[in-house]
């Protein structure tokens, strides 16, 4: 068993174990952190497959940005896990049966009988002169330029939809519009002079109490 194979089994085992932890943790923050472990070992597997760029992007984008955002959301939202898990045990037998059936079918189809090394011999290792990032960029912006543009439109739609569904003009906020603030005039907007009578009956607690006691 070569060293690469050893590494593959190590990272594959870590990925499987941490994925199991993701779905079995009670604390959602722990689950998200285990998901980070899953992604990192997945990235390691990709790098073993000589897809260095994808592996690094997985860590930069998913671990660095998406999972951090996820963590924020999980910490901010008060998700009641207990109610979400209430039916877990009840549906476990049925779910497990379906999952096992699917697993059996998938192993039967995707197993070595159809996808073994005899059908797909492993390609020779690429030399040092092969630039993964360069090749990926070349094919993305030539052969696959149309799908790339479509993906861009898809992101635009996501932005429009998110803004439409969540942005509301609230009338009860206390924010101040600086544009209005700077247009304030010296006279009527800033100071208002109120005329008050300069003399009148002296008001002390005693006189007030007397005034209250007097029958009307």
């Amino acid at each position: 068993m070569g060293f690469e194979k050893f590494l593959f089994y190590c990272f594959a085992a870590i990925a499987l174990a941490s994925a199991g932890m993701v779905i079995s943790r009670r604390n959602p923050v722990h689950a998200v952190l285990w998901m980070v472990v899953t992604f990192v070992s997945g990235a390691a597997l990709w790098i073993l497959l000589e897809a260095e760029f994808l592996g690094i992007v997985l860590i930069l984008v998913y671990v660095g940005a998406v999972m951090v955002l996820f963590l924020f959301v999980v910490m901010m939202l008060d998700v009641d896990i207990a109610t979400l898990r209430a039916c877990f045990i009840r549906y476990l037998p049925l779910g497990a049966a379906v999952a096992l059936l699917m697993l059996g079918e998938i192993v039967w189809i995707v197993g070595p009988a159809n996808f073994g090394l005899t059908h797909f011999p492993s390609p020779p290792a690429a030399g040092l002169d092969v630039n993964n990032t360069h090749d990926l960029g070349m094919s993305l912006y030539t052969t696959y330029v149309y799908p790339v543009e479509l993906a861009a439109v898809l992101l635009l739609v996501a932005i429009v939809a998110a803004i439409r569904l969540t942005m509301r003009r609230r009338t009860d906020t206390k924010t101040i519009d600086p544009a209005v603030q700077s247009r304030v005039k010296k006279g009527p907007d800033r100071i208002r002079i109120v005329k008050m009578a300069s003399v009148g009956p002296l008001e002390t607690p005693e006189t007030l109490a007397e005034a209250k006691d007097e029958p009307r």
Binding site: Y144, Y146, A158, A161, L165
Partner: peptide
Amino acid sequence: LTLYLGLELLALSLYALVAFDR
């Protein structure tokens, strides 16, 4: 790939439209 992207573009727009009346 193109087919799937078209499908998702359609579907994503429709999800948002269904919830249009917030």
